[in-house]
């Protein structure tokens, strides 16, 4: 596939032999969020890895997930490190817990994903709307014919648990 993909001044490189990410991004370009599911114990994991961290099984399949989840934590970047993000500040980076497998295999674990919290045009969501407990769904930011970035956007569903923002 054509390399690299340019995005916000960064060269994103996913070579044909990238056994972690290549198919993940192809699914994302088809607007499917996939994670790896263990063939032995059935637990799912993200980011893509090669053995199951719970049972060491090598066999896995891509499993599509709903892309719905809850903000578990977040940060608001005011001072961008990467030049391509300077015009985006302030922007939110969110840690999402997906609905599938929340609280498994132990109560403090979940399928967690890092992304930006964005509006429909993929610009940053207003800071006042970013809070732990808010519900989100995945959206896909197309970057090239073979690559899209999963992002998350707020939904109108009732919050999950306590809604919390850092005090002003």
């Amino acid at each position: 596939m054509p390399q690299p993909v340019q995005y916000r001044g960064m060269a994103l490189i996913v070579p044909d032999n990238d056994s972690e990410w290549k198919e993940f991004y192809e699914h994302a370009r088809a607007h499917r969020l996939v994670v790896r599911k263990c063939k032995a114990c059935g637990l799912m994991r993200y980011p893509p890895t090669h053995a199951c961290p719970w049972c060491m099984e090598l066999g896995w399949t891509w499993q599509e997930v709903s892309g719905r989840g809850t903000i578990y934590s977040y940060e608001i970047v005011a001072h961008a490190i990467q030049p391509g993000f300077r015009e985006q500040t302030p922007y939110a980076v969110v840690l999402i817990e997906l609905d599938e497998q929340r609280g498994q295999p132990t109560p403090d674990e979940a399928l967690r994903v890092i992304a930006n919290l964005v509006k429909a045009d993929f610009t940053p969501e207003a800071e006042a709307n970013v809070a732990i407990g808010r519900r989100v769904r995945v959206v896909f930011q197309d970057l090239a014919d073979h690559m899209a970035l999963p992002q998350f956007t707020l939904t109108e569903e009732p919050a999950s648990g306590r809604v919390w923002r850092m005090p002003e």
Partner: peptide, 8 residues
């Protein structure tokens, strides 16, 4: 790729 494209 899991973090840096998101400005992290």
């Amino acid at each position: 790729l899991a973090q840096v494209p998101y400005g992290m």
